[in-house]
Structure formats: structure tokens, C-alpha cells
Amino acid sequence: MKSAVIVFPGSNCDRDMAVALEMVSGNKPHMIWHGESGLPDGLDLIAIPGGFSYGDYLRSGAMAARSNIVPSIRDAANTGVRVLGVCNGFQILTEIGLLPGALMRNSQINFVCKDAPLEVAPNRTQFTAAYPAEELISIPVAHHDGNYFAAEDELDRLEDEERVVFRYAENINGSARNIAGITNAEGNILGMMPHPERAMDSKHGGTDGRRLFEALLN
């Protein structure tokens, strides 16, 4: 699997993401600085990592979404390359407009940092294909702005098209309809607040994130 990790000023999960990708695929991902204007050819996956790009100035993800590299990400996504945005990466994908809605301040104001039990809809996208449908998985969350918002008709559309692929088993941040992760209509772009790259090894306290990356090898 040939992958790239996009690095912004203030990204702090980029190296964790790189380690996770190499652990599963055996290949080091290309680390791509946001100021670059192109991506390597033949990518299978573009990962937009967590962190606090540009210090969350203006809105989380707002500045990163206007970076030089973004048109290349959009072009690649439109040709079917898989794009995974985790945490700040999810915020950036909504700010770019590749995913609908917005991530707002958690409803209880507090930063939430804990293992989050998640329900998975496995059939919709390759990202979740390795998870059994009935199983609750546990993946860590760590965010201040994870409160998913979209207009009611947009939420209905997401549900009708089965694009809500991760839901919190209990609502930890005020997210509409317990949404923790969604895909685009085609299913090749996934944005999620929980951090699968932090649940790769038993020493992390859990390995439920690993299957997300492994499923992409198929």
C-alpha cells in the first residue's frame, strides 16, 4: 500500500499515523508538507492526521483547508484514492468540503480524552470492512471540537445512504445522532474523530484500530 501523510504546522499525530501505516503495510508512507503543490503518483491512501493545525486559529481545520496541497488532495479523492481524516483531519475534510457538516466545540465544553466505545457499520466502505457488525469496538478519542453538526436534511441523507460508519455508543461530545465518523457518497473518503492509529498494539491498551488499516490492504 502506497500512502501519504499530510503534515501541517501543528499536526501532532502525523508520526503515529506513519508508524501505524508502516506497521500494517510494511511501507513507510510519504510525509507531505502542506506547502507542497503535488502528491506522489499512484497513492492508495492519503491520511490527514490529528493535531491542532495552525493552532486551531479561526476554526479547527479552517487554515489547513486552504493549504497549497489541498487541490491535489481533492483531485486524488475525486479519482477514487482513499482519504482518511482523523480528528483534526476530519475537521479539515469538512472545512475543505469533501465531507458535509462541521465539527463544533464539545457540548459540555470540556476536552474529551478517553477510550470511546463505538458502533460500526461495516458494509458501507472498505475502511470498516474488517469489523463485525454487532461488535462494539473501542478506540481512543482526544478532542475539544468533536461535536458533529449538520442540517437535519443532511443528517437524514447521511443515514439514508448509510454513510454514518462510526457512532459513539454513548454520546460524549454532543454530536448529532452520535456521529463519530462519516464517509462521502462514494465511500472512499472517511472522516472520524476517534484515533485508530492509537489502537494498534496491545501496549496501546487495545488493537481495535488496526483492522481499519488492515482492511485497506485488500
Binding site: 479552517a62 457538516g101 442540517a151
Partner: peptide
């Protein structure tokens, strides 16, 4: 429209 406000919210 492009930067200062996120017109979704």
C-alpha cells in the same frame, strides 16, 4: 464565504 465564516454553522 471562503474563509472567515463557515456558512454551514
Amino acid at each position: 464565504e471562503k474563509l472567515l465564516a463557515n456558512t454551514v454553522i
